[in-house]
């Protein structure tokens, strides 16, 4: 099986670009799952419920994407063993900022899927996943001190 979203045949798969974007979304899910472990560790125990919920949501998406890609004879990208943090996560504010980073990265991945998708069902999946990521981001931005709390164009450059 190919591991880069391409088909094993010499003729490009009609969903090759879509599969590559889905691989990016899967990589984003792996990253978010790992990252939420860091987020949770930096929060007091009583504040971890949204972390558990978000992490499970990313796990569900990860499993859904892996199943979809496998059904297309594409090897799902694996998780990395670890990732480098963008900044030290030493406080609840840092934790919320990391969660925002994770969700905004996820949103970007899914808007790319929407751009690249050839299958209607993939676009339906994409808009649902993008929406869920933005809703979680809206939940984290106040704790991260981010304003505005909402985004006009989640996953897209605002320019």
């Amino acid at each position: 099986m190919a591991d880069d979203g391409s088909s094993t045949s010499s003729t490009p798969s009609p969903t090759a670009a879509e599969d590559a974007a889905l691989q990016d979304a899967l990589a984003a899910a792996h990253t978010a799952i790992w990252g939420y472990g860091v987020v949770g560790a930096a929060l007091p125990a009583g504040a971890r419920k949204p972390v558990v919920t978000a992490e499970q949501a990313h796990r569900d998406v990860r499993d859904q994407l892996a199943t979809l890609l496998t059904s297309r004879q594409v090897d799902p990208v694996p998780a990395e063993a670890a990732y480098a943090l963008p900044f030290p996560v030493l406080s609840p504010i840092d934790a919320a900022a990391l969660a925002v980073t994770l969700e905004e990265g996820t949103a970007t991945a899914w808007t790319w899927v929407l751009d690249q998708a050839t299958e209607r069902s993939t676009r339906e999946l994409g808009v649902a996943a993008l929406t869920a990521a933005e809703q979680r981001a809206v939940g984290w931005r106040p704790s991260a001190g981010r304003a505005p709390v909402t985004s006009a164009f989640p996953g897209l450059a605002n320019s």
Binding site: A27, T31, V77, E80, W112, V113, S159
Partner: peptide
């Protein structure tokens, strides 16, 4: 106007 999604290596 689209940004490339992050990858497992590039996000952070």
């Amino acid at each position: 106007m689209l940004s490339r999604p992050f990858t497992r290596r590039t996000l952070f």
